[in-house]
Structure formats: structure tokens, C-alpha cells
Design a protein around this nucleic acid. Structure first.
Length: 657
RNA sequence: GCGCCCGUAGCUCAGUUGGAUAGAGCGGCUGACUUCGAAUCAGUAGGUCGGGAGUUCGAAUCUCUCCGGGCGCACCA
């Protein structure tokens, strides 16, 4: 609602300025610092002052005088040195919200691909992976809330060094073959992803002590790349099992995907070979004839020596494969994967995985069948914009990929390739102490410490969630001893996930998170559970009313524009309603700035506003009928807005708290 | 050495893309549960926005410089 008026005001000013001064100015709308100044402020006069060489105050006066009526706006006034402050028509605003007007603006500007999670399938997920997935998933929800078509991809590097190292562990260190690993997988007492976590650490440390054993790694990599033999089969077995474990972990957080493109298919379907020809043909890479990169295919430009794309032994680097993959995402490769369904989510959405050959009797994504209803357009790739949610430390490699697109002449796609970067999750020294991770003396005073996955250090995602759920269950049970345990369990899970997601989202992307277990376990203050608690309280009021034998009023018939106007004369009510009605504006802003944290912050603010409202205005005992109905409507409105905003953050509202 | 990021209240962080009197949570201190459930609310203390210079009507935000921290710059990903 707020957002649509904002857009109207902006375009009205833009049009007027165009006619009046012949200047095309994209008019921005700000929020006045003080609420007494009104609901919106237009600083356009300041920008015009430079070009017109006139005092901003004079221009502002002209604009305010001449612009004429704008729907929803009650008055304009010039303030300060040249601000135009805008007051909204409160009655009309409230009445529109009462009617439930929603500006459903479907974005038709093509499809967006968001690639996130991308965990190496060789061990259990850790806290850093959760930041990636939570950021990516929330951004997807934000885009979808704005009407955007989004495809979620989770790239699986099932042929890389990390998988090879675990295979080395099984094969050379533990002398386990396919049947032994299958036995491990079948053993309910073994958590395979945790097992691999430790095995990977053991392999890494073995390499360190026995440098000659690195030959095992390259032998394994070659076997995997060739795709034949027991070692390759073992690698597939491990990677597939770990991918399933990751999907399960992510599902606990309500994170879902549309398709899993796998590196093995990029290799087998010769995506790289095609991209390689393209790069050579368009002179984006050259064969180095001297120096340390002798015999390599190199992309020039980004660093002094250039970036090696193809090694002197003929194998392709990760960046090379990523260029091919990025081309495919934009539909520029002229090749496609084959697909098969891998999993069906609770809402019927199907998760597809790539394969290297057509699977008989399986519906393919491009040919939906009657029993395979089309929920999204069943054609993967062909995006107009691509967001790659990847750790900031890989910025250089992402630049190389984009430079590759540009060198191939795909400037448009290069600009539409966004590295959605974020800083790492480190651990606070206190947290390391809590977890028994040894840290060097000089690190104890640092705000955070980066721990090593190779050493098997870190916080496993599932362990963290388990701790959060245990803590939440304790809290829930202490308040609801009479409720059935399975219900309390469900509530505890919702609270734990909300706490976790909110914790990971409240920091802006370029802030290093110093993870602290005690802080993450907190359910008070600026946390996910606080947001949930507000929504639950709003719902409780309406339920309490029914328990007292009162009907929930039919708001639309009992309140009209006049009643709204009367009630909203109260500055307090007006400010509260205003705060709660800005979801669309906030989400739109957060999408353009690429900051899910802004949505999290807003959710907290709305929750806080409601808590304040709740404490200040008892409503069940309110005697003035109109006011009572209004208060109840406000409560219901808050509830809806909190649920909506929560849903965008992936936070569910529990039945009780 | 080159490149990118960061420095804001005791702690952890926001700061609407250059706007009006710098905000929040935690922690501290005062208060509020017989009331729609206190995972809450009200109040209070706490700032030379790392230092300096510049750009202009206007700077936490842009430029330069210095100080302090982080991360990259592989024929790893």
C-alpha cells in the first residue's frame, strides 16, 4: 500500500518536473527524520537547484504549488531549505488497507536464477553453509514476493578435490570398497556425513605428514574424471549420499531447490569442450608459450600473469567449468542437460537433478505430462539475470567468470551476472572455548577466529539445530507443560529455526559473523522468536475473544472510511499502522540493495511496534465499540503483516509460545 | 607489492544509496505480572561516527592521506 503511493508520488513529480523544467529526474522518496514532518519527503528541489541555478527553497515552493492533486496525498508543504513534505490522507489509507487492497505487480521481466548452497558433497554441512543457504533462500523469497519468476539452483561439485579426498580416505586409509561403504550407509548407528567429516580431517592430516600420498589424490581425481572403475563408483556413492544428507539438513531450515546441476554432467556432456572452442574462437584465452604458465590456456587481464583456465596437462580448472555453467544459465551454450526427478517437496514442487543421458519412461522437464503438473516453467536455464550466492573470498574467481562472458562478447549477460557475496562465519574465541577447539594464544583477544574444516573443526549445522531445538523445547515445556509433547516439539522446532535464520540474516552481507553459541541460543531481544512471539500474541487476542463468547467483528461492515479517519487522528495509531503497512516498500528496497538484513530488521520493528501497541491498548475490555473494533482490526492487520514478513524470512509462526 | 572489505555507545551491529536533532539489541541502573501470557513493556545512563585534510547549500556516507584490523592475488575450489 505504502509502496504503491510512493511510486505514484514519484512518477507524478517526475512527470511534472519533465513538463515544467524539461529535466528528466528520477525522483527519490525519503522518509522524514521526524514523523511530525509527514510520511514522505521529496528532496528533488535540491537536485534541481544545481541545474536550474536557483534556490532549492524557491523550486520546492513552485513544485508544491503547481503539481496538483496526487491520489492518496492530503497535503504538501515546503520545509527546511527545500524539502517537500507529504502527508497522506489517513482515512483513505486506512480504508484501502481495510479493503485489503494489494498491489500485486507481477514482474514479467524474465526469469532470475539464484544459485546457492553449493556445498562440496564430501562431509556434513557447517554453520558457514547455513549462512549461504539462508541468505540465498531468503533472497529468493524476497524476489518471489515481488512477483519475480525465480529458479533455484544448487550446484553439486561431485568430481572435485574435496570428494576425492574422502574417497582417498576410504580407499587408501581405511581400505574400504564399495560394499563396505554401502554397509556404512545402511548402518543406522552411523551418521554418514559426520563419518566423512572426520575421515576428511584424517585424510588432510595424513597428506600433511606424508607428502608423497598426494599422488593418491591425483590418481583418484583422474579416475573420477574418467568416470569408470570402482573408485569412480565409490565417489558417486559418497557424493550422492552426502547430497541427500545436505538436502535433509536444508529442509530442516525450509530451504528448497528446483534443480541440482552436477559437475559430473558438465564433464560427461562436454559442456566444457564446447565452451573451450568458443573461448578459443573468440580469442578470450590464449596458449601461453613462455614463463611459468607455459603450455596453459590463459585468460589475460585480471592479474599480471593472467588466470590459467586449462592446465598444461590438458585438464580444465574450476573456473573454466564455471564459465561453461554460467553460459548455460543464460541459455548461451547451445547444449542442455538431461534431467530426472529426485525428490518431491511437501507442496508438490519437484526437485530435479541433472543426468548425462535421457532416462526412459521419465517425464523430462521440457515435456510436462498430465501426472506431472507444471508448477513453474519447465525449462531450466535461459535466465535474464543470475545471482551467484558465493563467499566473498571467491570474488576474484567470480570476476574471472564475468570477464569470460565479456570476452566472449556477452556484455549484457556479464552485467546481469551478480556475485551475491557475503563474508565468512568465524567463531568467537569464547565459542571456541565452549566447543573445545584449541586456538593459539595470539588469537584469544581477536573478535573472531577462523577455524579449519580440514582439521575437522567447526560447528556442524545439524548439531547446532539440535542444540537450538533442545533449548527451545525446554522453554516451551516450562510454559506449556499440559500440551502434548509432540506439539511442543513442533513448536520448539519452529522457534529454533526462526532463531537460527534470524541470527544469520540480521547481519548485513559484508559483515563477518563472529558466531557465538550463547548469543545464537538467545530468544530475547532482536531475534526470530521475538517476531514469532508478537504474531502469536496478536492471534491470542482474537482467540481469547472467541473464548469469551464474543464474535470477531466483520471489520469491513463495522468500520468505514469515516471511522478509520476518526481513529487514525490519533498520532499513535497512525504511526503504528503506517509502520506495519510498509512490507512491500521495504522488500522492494531490500531487493534492490540486495540486503535480506533489511527485511529482518523491518520484521523486528513491526514486532516491536505491535508489542508496544499490545501493552498500551487493552482491547477486549475496551468499552467504545468503534474503538474496540478498530483495535481488533489493527491487531489482525499486525498479525497478517507479521506472518507475511516472517514467511519472506522463512520464519513460521507457531501455534503457541 | 597489488586489489577488495571493515573501523559508529561498554559489547554485537543498523544507518533508507549525499539530507533535517546519529539508532537498535545485549549488558548496566529504575520501575511494571490477580489484567488480551513478562520469550514482554516503560524509563534512564552511555557517541570528538579511527585521526587529519578536501569536495558543497549539507558528509557516518564521496575523494585523498595516515593509523589499526580482515580477506584475496595457484596449473585448489
Amino acid at each position: 500500500m505504502f509502496h504503491s503511493i510512493e511510486k505514484q508520488v514519484s512518477s507524478a513529480f517526475r512527470a511534472h518536473i519533465q513538463i515544467r523544467y524539461g529535466i528528466d529526474l528520477p525522483v527519490t522518496i525519503e522518509q522524514p527524520r521526524q514523523s511530525e514532518f509527514g510520511e514522505m519527503a521529496v528532496p528533488a528541489a535540491f537536485q534541481l537547484a544545481k541545474q536550474l541555478r536557483q534556490a532549492p527553497k524557491k523550486i520546492a515552493a513552485e513544485l508544491a504549488e503547481e503539481i496538483g492533486p496526487i491520489p492518496g496525498v492530503a497535503s504538501l508543504e515546503v520545509a527546511g531549505n527545500g524539502y517537500i513534505n507529504i502527508r497522506l490522507d489517513r482515512g483513505a489509507y486506512g480504508a484501502a488497507l481495510l479493503r485489503g487492497e494489494t498491489a500485486a505487480s507481477a514482474d514479467t521481466s524474465g526469469k532470475v536464477i539464484v544459485e546457492h548452497t553449493n556445498i562440496n558433497p564430501n562431509k556434513a554441512a557447517h554453520i558457514g553453509h547455513l549462512r549461504n543457504a539462508t541468505l540465498g533462500d531468503t533472497f529468493v523469497r524476497m524476489l518471489r514476493a515481488g512477483g519475480q519468476r525465480v529458479e533455484v539452483q544448487n550446484y553439486i561439485d561431485n568430481t572435485g578435490v574435496q570428494v576425492a579426498d574422502v574417497v582417498v580416505g576410504f580407499h587408501y586409509l581405511e581400505h574400504k570398497g564399495i560394499s563396505e561403504v554401502k554397509a556404512l550407509l545402511a548402518d543406522p548407528a552411523v551418521r554418514f556425513d559426520y563419518y566423512c567429516w572426520d575421515l576428511y580431517a584424517r585424510t588432510s592430516s595424513y597428506y600433511k605428514d606424508h607428502a608423497e600420498s598426494l599422488a593418491w589424490r591425483s590418481a583418484t581425481l583422474h579416475a573420477i574424471e574418467a568416470g569408470e572403475g570402482d573408485v569412480a563408483e565409490l565417489a558417486h556413492l559418497v557424493a550422492d549420499a552426502i547430497v541427500k544428507a545436505h538436502l535433509k539438513t536444508m529442509l530442516r531450515l525450509d530451504v528448497e531447490y528446483d534443480v541440482l546441476p552436477r559437475e559430473s554432467e558438465i564433464l560427461h556432456l562436454k559442456f566444457w569442450a564446447y565452451a573451450f572452442e568458443l573461448l578459443k574462437e573468440r580469442k578470450a584465452i590464449y596458449l601461453e608459450t613462455e614463463g611459468k604458465n607455459l603450455g596453459c590456456w590463459v585468460m589475460p587481464g585480471l592479474s599480471e600473469e593472467g588466470k590459467v583456465i586449462v592446465r598444461s596437462n590438458g585438464t580444465v580448472t574450476y573456473v573454466g567449468k564455471d564459465i561453461a555453467y554460467q553460459l548455460w544459465k543464460f541459455g548461451l551454450l547451445g547444449k542442455d542437460f538431461y534431467y530426472e526427478p529426485m525428490h518431491t517437496y511437501a507442496d508438490g514442487r519437484v526437485l530435479w537433478v541433472t543426468t548425462d543421458q535421457p532416462t526412459p519412461n521419465q517425464p523430462t522437464p521440457n515435456q510436462p505430462t498430465p501426472d506431472q503438473p507444471t508448477t513453474a516453467a519447465h525449462e531450466f536455464g535461459h535466465a535474464t539475470r543470475v545471482f551467484n550466492v558465493i563467499d566473498a573470498r571467491q570474488a576474484y574467481l567470480q570476476e574471472v567468470v564475468v570477464a569470460g562472458l565479456r570476452a566472449l562478447g556477452y556484455d549484457e549477460q556479464a552485467t546481469q551476472s551478480v556475485h551475491f557475496n557475503y563474508e565468512m562465519v568465524a567463531l568467537s574465541p569464547r565459542c571456541c572455548a565452549d566447543l573445545g577447539i584449541p586456538i593459539p594464544e595470539e588469537d584469544r583477544k581477536k573478535p573472531y577466529v577462523e577455524v579449519s574444516g580440514r582439521k575437522g573443526q567447526g560447528v556442524k549445522a545439524d548439531d547446532l539445530m539440535d542444540s537450538l531445538i533442545a533449548k527451545a523445547l525446554e522453554e516451551v515445556t516450562s510454559r506449556h507443560a499440559d500440551d502434548p509433547p509432540e506439539k511442543n516439539q513442533k513448536v520448539a522446532e519452529q522457534i529454533a529455526i526462526a532463531a537460527l535464520r534470524y541470527f544469520l540474516l540480521k547481519f548485513t552481507r559484508n559483515t563477518v559473523i563472529a558466531f557465538d553459541l550463547q548469543e545464537a541460543l538467545s530468544f530475547e531481544g532482536e531475534t526470530g522468536p521475538y517476531v514469532q512471539y508478537s504474531a502469536v500474541r496478536a492471534r491470542n487476542i482474537l482467540r481469547k475473544l472467541a473464548e469469551r463468547g464474543e464474535q470477531i467483528p466483520d471489520f469491513a461492515t463495522e468500520l468505514d472510511a469515516e471511522a478509520m479517519k476518526r481513529q487514525l487522528e490519533s498520532e499513535d495509531f497512525w504511526q503504528m499502522l503506517l509502520a506495519a503497512s510498509k512490507v512491500d516498500a521495504i522488500v522492494a528496497g531490500a531487493v534492490s540493495s540486495g540486503e535480506p538484513a533489511h527485511v529482518a530488521k523491518y520484521a523486528f520493528q513491526v514486532a516491536q511496534t505491535f508489542s508496544n501497541f499490545y501493552a498500551k491498548y487493552p482491547m477486549i475490555t475496551e468499552e467504545n465499540r468503534e474503538k474496540k473494533v478498530f483495535l481488533l482490526w489493527m491487531t489482525d492487520f499486525f498479525r497478517r503483516q507479521l506472518e507475511r514478513t516472517g514467511a519472506i524470512l522463512g520464519i513460521q509462526i507457531p501455534e503457541y509460545m
